[in-house]
Design a protein around this nucleic acid. Structure first.
Lengths: 144, 144
DNA sequence: ATTAAATATTTGTATATACAAATTAAAAAT
DNA sequence: ATTTTTAATTTGTATATACAAATATTTAAT
């Protein structure tokens, strides 16, 4: 009934493969962060801001490799949940975690750990590191 | 100004990496199929249907590793563009390319070739094959 | 034969993401 | 000092994707 990704007609195509992998990983990540009621990207953004309060959207955009408009949208949502606040000063915006945002850090770290566990268990630590690294090489090479 | 993906704070995380790679590849793919005015997933779906007329949404869903509802949406759009048609018979739907859909095949293949070229040029043929294969292994392992 | 369960597909709704244009402010050029 | 250019961020809009519920049809159970 269920077809493996590698049995698909276009399984040899990078477009197909990269997307299928991302969706699969996304689903695992969503599960891992469900306990804090955040999507993975919201969680990562929040962790970055907790670790470096005052971080600006532009920096977050670089760190998360997401477009500035996307960062704004993520921040809006986290602000609505009162996990962080924005202070606008001139053309620069600074993002700070609220106390309740900050309090979430241990749980967030726990989720992260759980997420890692998920795939390290399956792949092994070395293999995981190796694969992530070679994906990065690909990304950087495609950067041109 | 521009930060490499591998310089990000979470660059060692599979969530981050898989998504960053998928987005990068997606952008290249979008460019490759721009000349036929189709998004990559629409193009792949159309190619599948041209090569096997009558294909059902369920099969397409397996082949493309996308949810049935997503397949419906993709088909709707291609139907609106008069590149394929749906015939509904009982609870089963069959998808057929229209003549103008079928006529697009050579161009589609050309786009696919161009897309391949993009990354094979950068990575080399062997390295490309190897990487795609190891990504598949990961997908299949994560399947559990 | 009728009812219940399983299956294929679609619809309504929600999400993350991005592009292009708009806004605002700072810096540079005149 | 005023104008122009550059930069950071946000807003409006569009996209692909998915989940959950709805629909319709076939198969199985009684």
């Amino acid at each position: 009934m269920f077809m493996k990704a590698s049995e698909s007609k276009y399984s040899n195509c990078l477009y197909f493969t990269a997307n299928a992998l991302a969706r699969k990983v996304e689903r695992i990540a969503i599960d891992s962060w469900k306990s804090v009621n955040l999507s993975p990207s919201h969680a990562y953004l929040l962790m970055l801001v907790i670790e470096e309060p005052g971080l600006q959207p532009g920096i977050l955009s670089e760190q998360l490799q997401l477009k500035p408009s996307t960062i704004t949208r993520l921040i809006e949502k986290l602000e609505k949940k009162k996990l962080l606040i924005r202070t606008m000063d001139g053309r620069v915006t600074n993002i700070y975690p609220t106390p309740s945002g900050k309090n979430l850090l241990p749980k967030l770290k726990e989720c992260l750990k759980q997420f890692y566990q998920n795939y390290v268990d399956v792949l092994g630590k070395e293999e995981s590191v190796r694969l992530v690294r070679s994906m990065h090489q690909l990304i950087d090479k495609l950067e041109e």
